[in-house]
Computed example of a mutant assay.
Amino acid sequence: MGTRKYPPELRDRAVRLYRESEPRPVIRRLAEQLNVHPEALRNWIRQAQADHGERDERPSTAMLEENRRLARENAELRRVNDVLRAASAFFASEIDPTRRRS
């Protein structure tokens, strides 16, 4: 079975239904009613619990987004550093003709 991308509104509604129901519904049954994969619903619920400080074993959505932002920034800084290193080597060889270009 391939992965499906569910709309954020469906995720929010599904999690809200689960969290606001007393007693808590069986995830499999709620997933069937909403026509979503039970594991997808289970993951959404776990993530909502992490976001509300109810689970410690998984990072919050804010932390995940910050990690993604930092990874992108880190990759960009590496690219810039590579360009600067190459430019530095080039200009050093221009100033000192005895240095060989690599």
Rank of each mutant, 00 (worst) to 15 (best):
M1K: 02
G2M: 05
T3W: 07
T3Q: 14
R4K: 13
K5Y: 05
Y6D: 04
P7N: 12
P7S: 12
P7M: 08
P8D: 07
P8F: 00
P8K: 07
E9Q: 12
E9I: 10
L10C: 02
R11A: 04
D12C: 05
R13D: 12
R13A: 15
R13H: 13
R13I: 08
V15N: 03
V15L: 05
R16M: 06
L17M: 15
R19H: 00
E20V: 00
S21T: 11
E22W: 01
P23I: 02
P23D: 03
R24H: 02
R24E: 01
R24N: 00
P25G: 03
P25E: 00
P25I: 03
V26D: 06
V26E: 06
R28K: 10
R28V: 07
R29V: 07
L30Q: 04
A31V: 04
A31I: 02
E32D: 12
N35P: 03
N35E: 14
V36Q: 04
H37W: 01
H37F: 02
P38S: 11
E39P: 02
E39L: 13
A40C: 13
L41C: 06
R42I: 05
W44D: 04
I45R: 02
I45F: 03
R46P: 00
Q47N: 07
A48V: 11
A48F: 10
A48H: 12
Q49H: 08
A50K: 07
A50I: 08
A50M: 09
D51W: 11
H52K: 14
H52R: 14
G53E: 12
D56G: 11
E57H: 14
E57Q: 12
E57A: 07
R58V: 10
R58H: 01
R58C: 05
S60K: 11
A62E: 15
A62D: 14
A62K: 14
A62Y: 07
A62V: 09
A62F: 09
A62T: 13
M63E: 15
L64T: 09
L64C: 06
L64D: 01
E65I: 10
E66S: 09
N67M: 12
N67W: 11
N67L: 14
N67R: 15
R69H: 14
L70F: 13
A71T: 13
A71Q: 15
A71M: 12
A71K: 15
A71V: 08
A71S: 13
R72T: 11
R72N: 12
R72S: 14
R72Y: 08
E73N: 10
E73A: 14
E73L: 13
N74W: 10
N74A: 10
N74S: 15
A75Q: 15
A75D: 12
L77Q: 10
R78G: 09
R78L: 15
N81E: 10
L84T: 04
R85Q: 04
R85V: 02
A87P: 02
S88T: 15
A89T: 03
A92W: 02
S93G: 05
S93L: 03
I95Y: 00
I95G: 00
D96Q: 00
D96L: 05
P97Q: 06
T98S: 15
T98D: 13
T98P: 03
